[in-house]
Deep mutational scan, measured.
Amino acid sequence: SEHYTFDGEEQAIRFMRDMEAKNLKYELQIHNGKYIIQVD
């Protein structure tokens, strides 16, 4: 699995939509205002 970190919500949402379009599962965590997305 890989981790991707985003500072902004818009970037994170765009990335998650992209993952959904590719049928990839992901998990979102928010730490200290950063959006951390783990992709299986």
Score class of each variant (00 low, 15 high):
residue 11 Q to F: 07
residue 22 K to Y: 07
residue 6 F to Q: 00
residue 6 F to T: 01
residue 5 T to V: 14
residue 40 D to I: 15
residue 4 Y to C: 06
residue 15 F to S: 01
residue 28 L to H: 02
residue 20 E to Q: 08
residue 5 T to E: 12
residue 29 Q to W: 13
residue 26 Y to H: 03
residue 31 H to P: 01
residue 3 H to I: 15
residue 20 E to H: 06
residue 4 Y to I: 06
residue 1 S to P: 12
residue 19 M to I: 10
residue 38 Q to G: 05
residue 16 M to W: 02
residue 5 T to S: 10
residue 24 L to N: 04
residue 17 R to A: 11
residue 21 A to D: 09
residue 3 H to G: 07
residue 38 Q to S: 14
residue 34 K to Y: 09
residue 2 E to C: 15
residue 12 A to Y: 05
residue 6 F to W: 02
residue 2 E to M: 15
residue 28 L to E: 01
residue 22 K to W: 07
residue 11 Q to A: 14
residue 4 Y to G: 01
residue 19 M to D: 01
residue 1 S to I: 13
residue 31 H to V: 15
residue 5 T to M: 11
residue 34 K to F: 10
residue 38 Q to E: 09
residue 13 I to S: 07
residue 1 S to G: 11
residue 33 G to L: 03
residue 4 Y to A: 03
residue 39 V to R: 03
residue 39 V to M: 08
residue 35 Y to E: 00
residue 19 M to K: 01
residue 31 H to Q: 12
residue 8 G to Q: 14
residue 3 H to Q: 13
residue 26 Y to S: 04
residue 17 R to E: 08
residue 35 Y to T: 01
residue 8 G to Y: 14
residue 28 L to K: 02
residue 25 K to L: 07
residue 38 Q to W: 15
residue 39 V to G: 03
residue 37 I to P: 00
residue 18 D to I: 12
residue 32 N to G: 10
residue 20 E to F: 06
residue 11 Q to G: 07
residue 36 I to P: 00
residue 38 Q to D: 06
residue 29 Q to P: 00
residue 39 V to A: 04
residue 28 L to V: 12
residue 12 A to G: 02
residue 21 A to H: 07
residue 10 E to T: 06
residue 31 H to M: 12
residue 6 F to L: 03
residue 18 D to K: 10
residue 5 T to N: 04
residue 21 A to F: 09
residue 14 R to H: 08
residue 25 K to A: 09
residue 7 D to Q: 06
residue 14 R to I: 11
residue 22 K to E: 06
residue 31 H to G: 04
residue 22 K to H: 09
residue 26 Y to Q: 00
residue 26 Y to N: 01
residue 16 M to E: 01
residue 12 A to N: 01
residue 19 M to H: 03
residue 36 I to L: 08
residue 20 E to Y: 05
residue 39 V to Y: 04
residue 4 Y to K: 03
residue 17 R to P: 00
residue 8 G to L: 15
residue 11 Q to M: 10
residue 33 G to S: 04
residue 17 R to G: 04
residue 35 Y to H: 02
residue 10 E to I: 06
residue 36 I to Y: 12
residue 15 F to A: 04
residue 32 N to Y: 06
residue 14 R to L: 11
residue 33 G to M: 03
residue 26 Y to G: 04
residue 12 A to S: 02
residue 7 D to P: 05
residue 23 N to G: 15
residue 27 E to G: 06
residue 35 Y to L: 03
residue 35 Y to R: 00
residue 39 V to Q: 03
residue 14 R to W: 08
residue 36 I to T: 07
residue 29 Q to H: 13
residue 11 Q to E: 14
residue 5 T to K: 06
residue 6 F to M: 03
residue 2 E to G: 13
residue 24 L to T: 06
residue 24 L to Q: 08
residue 39 V to D: 01
residue 33 G to P: 00
residue 39 V to N: 02
residue 33 G to N: 06
residue 2 E to W: 15
residue 40 D to A: 13
residue 36 I to W: 07
residue 9 E to T: 05
residue 38 Q to N: 10
residue 13 I to N: 11
residue 23 N to L: 07
residue 5 T to A: 08
residue 15 F to K: 02
residue 18 D to T: 08
residue 2 E to Q: 13
residue 18 D to C: 15
residue 5 T to H: 10
residue 38 Q to V: 15
residue 10 E to W: 08
residue 3 H to A: 12
residue 23 N to P: 02
residue 39 V to I: 10
residue 39 V to T: 05
residue 24 L to H: 07
residue 32 N to R: 06
residue 6 F to Y: 02
residue 40 D to V: 14
residue 38 Q to T: 15
residue 19 M to Q: 04
residue 17 R to H: 09
residue 23 N to A: 07
residue 31 H to A: 11
residue 35 Y to A: 01
residue 15 F to M: 04
residue 32 N to V: 04
residue 34 K to A: 05
residue 8 G to E: 15
residue 38 Q to C: 15
residue 13 I to K: 10
residue 13 I to Q: 11
residue 21 A to G: 08
residue 24 L to F: 09
residue 14 R to P: 05
residue 36 I to Q: 04
residue 16 M to C: 08
residue 1 S to V: 13
residue 9 E to L: 14
residue 13 I to F: 11
residue 13 I to R: 11
residue 40 D to H: 15
residue 15 F to H: 02
residue 3 H to S: 13
residue 18 D to L: 14
residue 2 E to F: 15
residue 5 T to R: 06
residue 37 I to A: 02
residue 38 Q to M: 14
residue 7 D to M: 08
residue 39 V to P: 03
residue 36 I to S: 05
residue 17 R to D: 05
residue 33 G to D: 05
residue 4 Y to N: 02
residue 7 D to A: 07
residue 40 D to R: 12
residue 23 N to V: 03
residue 28 L to A: 04
residue 31 H to C: 14
residue 40 D to P: 12
residue 40 D to N: 13
residue 32 N to E: 10
residue 22 K to Q: 11
residue 30 I to K: 05
residue 34 K to T: 08
residue 19 M to A: 08
residue 40 D to Y: 15
residue 5 T to W: 10
residue 7 D to Y: 11
residue 8 G to S: 15
residue 8 G to N: 15
residue 11 Q to C: 12
residue 29 Q to Y: 14
residue 9 E to A: 10
residue 29 Q to N: 09
residue 38 Q to K: 15
residue 40 D to T: 14
residue 5 T to Q: 08
residue 35 Y to Q: 01
residue 27 E to N: 12
residue 20 E to A: 09
residue 33 G to R: 03
residue 16 M to D: 00
residue 7 D to K: 05
residue 33 G to Q: 04
residue 37 I to Y: 02
residue 21 A to Q: 10
residue 23 N to C: 12
residue 36 I to A: 03
residue 28 L to W: 10
residue 23 N to F: 07
residue 37 I to N: 00
residue 15 F to P: 00
residue 34 K to R: 09
residue 10 E to L: 07
residue 10 E to F: 05
residue 7 D to I: 07
residue 13 I to P: 00
residue 3 H to D: 06
residue 30 I to F: 09
residue 1 S to W: 14
residue 3 H to F: 15
residue 15 F to Y: 03
residue 3 H to R: 14
residue 17 R to S: 07
residue 38 Q to H: 14
residue 27 E to T: 15
residue 32 N to K: 07
residue 39 V to H: 03
residue 34 K to M: 11
residue 11 Q to K: 05
residue 15 F to N: 00
residue 11 Q to W: 07
residue 18 D to A: 12
residue 33 G to W: 02
